[in-house]
């Protein structure tokens, strides 16, 4: 899932300080699962903003509404009849959701209440870890299911580097060395040949905005 972290309250307050009617838009999928931007977090943020603005004698009219996914037109539609009443939207979705919302309502400022952090896994309640940088060229088949792009601090394809330190990365003794783990796993699987081969320079495909159209589907003609 996509993991996000709520922005510091002071930053959010600053972003919306000029607006008197703000719609706080939650997203019920990834950011709700990682306890950042779902219905509950929308309520909390609304309460915090309401109190802070009252204290400053600058009251704000707030409404919260959470939809299933802000990255999906089908659900965004629910905001259509609502947004006219507000002079800003504060979105708690990931960067994709925020942009899709801003694209749908270009006349209204859409502001981010979260920082999108990574594509990751749920290690425990409230504990998430990054696992994928969406590089568009998955090599997990050769690296024992451990991503060198994400899990190696230098993103090396022919690791480890000279900084590998007793199983840990040079950046921290809390960060395992990805290439140490790759070696250990492939050795147990008897597949070390996967990494004795030289991996040539990567063809980076994540340098431009990417589009995917599944076979059998097509982009609608521009009107």
């Amino acid at each position: 899932m996509i993991v996000a972290e709520r922005k510091p309250f002071e930053e959010i307050k600053e972003l919306v300080k000029a607006y008197k009617k703000v719609l706080v838009a939650g997203c019920g999928t990834c950011v709700a699962v990682c306890l950042t931007g779902g219905e509950k977090e929308v309520d909390i943020l609304k309460t915090e903003l309401d109190m802070a603005r009252r204290m400053e004698n600058n009251p704000v009219e707030l409404r919260g509404h959470t939809i299933e996914r802000q990255c999906d037109r089908e659900y965004l539609e629910a905001f259509d009849s609502m947004v006219g009443d507000f002079d800003a939207i504060l979105s708690m979705a990931c960067g994709a959701g925020i942009q899709f919302l801003a694209e749908r309502f270009p006349q209204i400022p859409v502001l981010p209440a979260v920082n999108t952090t990574f594509i990751g896994v749920n290690q425990g309640i409230g504990w998430y870890e990054e696992r994928c940088r969406s590089c568009s060229n998955c090599v997990l088949g050769d690296t024992g299911g451990i991503c060198p792009v994400t899990m190696c601090a230098k993103g090396l394809y022919n690791g480890p580097c000279g900084g590998t330190n007793k199983g840990n990365c040079e950046i921290s003794s809390d960060q395992p060395c990805a290439w140490f783990m790759i070696y250990e796993r492939l050795e147990k699987q008897g597949r070390l040949d996967c990494i004795t081969r030289f991996t040539p320079a990567q063809n980076w495909e994540n340098q431009v905005p990417r589009t995917l159209i599944q076979p059998g589907y097509k982009k609608p003609e521009k009107q």
Partner: peptide
């Protein structure tokens, strides 16, 4: 921002 467009082994080969 660390670049690491290519790694040291790929640099040797380049």
């Amino acid at each position: 921002k660390g670049v690491f467009d290519i790694d040291s082994m790929q640099l040797v080969n380049m």
